[in-house]
Simulated scan of single mutants.
Amino acid sequence: MDRRYLKKMRAYWAREEAKNLRHLQKMLATSAWFDFWHVHPDWYGKAARDPSDREAVAHSALRLLDHARRSLDADAREVQCWAELYPNTMNDGVYLHSANPNGRANYPHEFTGYIWGAKIPAWLEALLDAARYEVGVKESEEGAIYVIRARATPLAASQRCHDGPAA
């Protein structure tokens, strides 16, 4: 791979992640509730060009997820947080969801149709800490969709960043 391309894309992904982190921090600081609020690590869909870019977007999503979890745990809010990775990286997102006043009984999000503990690609497995995260897989017309959430632990009842019912 061309070193100039790699350097340019690393700088691009760093800028995009910083922008998303600022947006995430602002929402965490100002919002009392979330209704499937999310950020897109690859808003413009640039990761479709190269597999290394795909990994960069997934890694960025995981870092944003980690930040959200730490922030929510620190201020004791009951919020689900997870990352979704799609075949088209433009659809990737890091989500926050809580009980909210929108009148829908959709909290907690159930992750219907996902198979937990299924085989995942090696590039994704290499990015994950399997002790901390679990991955759900759902097939779509475009390909596999991956949901990444924190594993349930014996301390889950005291954790405030809930990731939905264990499957």
Rank of each mutant, 00 (worst) to 15 (best):
D2W: 02
R3Y: 13
R10Q: 13
A11R: 15
A11F: 01
E16W: 01
R22Y: 04
Q25R: 15
A29D: 14
T30P: 00
S31G: 01
W33A: 14
F36S: 03
H38G: 01
H40V: 02
P41Q: 08
G45D: 08
A48R: 15
V57W: 04
A58L: 06
H59N: 13
S60D: 06
S60R: 04
L62K: 05
L65Y: 03
D66E: 15
D66K: 05
R70F: 03
D73P: 00
A74W: 02
A76D: 04
E78N: 11
V79L: 10
V79P: 04
C81E: 06
T89F: 06
T89Y: 09
M90H: 12
G93H: 09
Y95I: 00
S98W: 10
N100D: 14
P101N: 12
A105D: 13
N106S: 13
F111N: 13
T112K: 14
T112R: 12
Y114H: 10
G117D: 11
I120C: 09
I120S: 10
A122F: 10
E125N: 13
A126Y: 04
A130Q: 12
R132T: 12
Y133D: 03
Y133E: 03
E134M: 01
V135H: 11
V135R: 12
S140M: 06
G143K: 08
G143S: 06
I145P: 00
T153G: 09
A157T: 03
S158R: 11
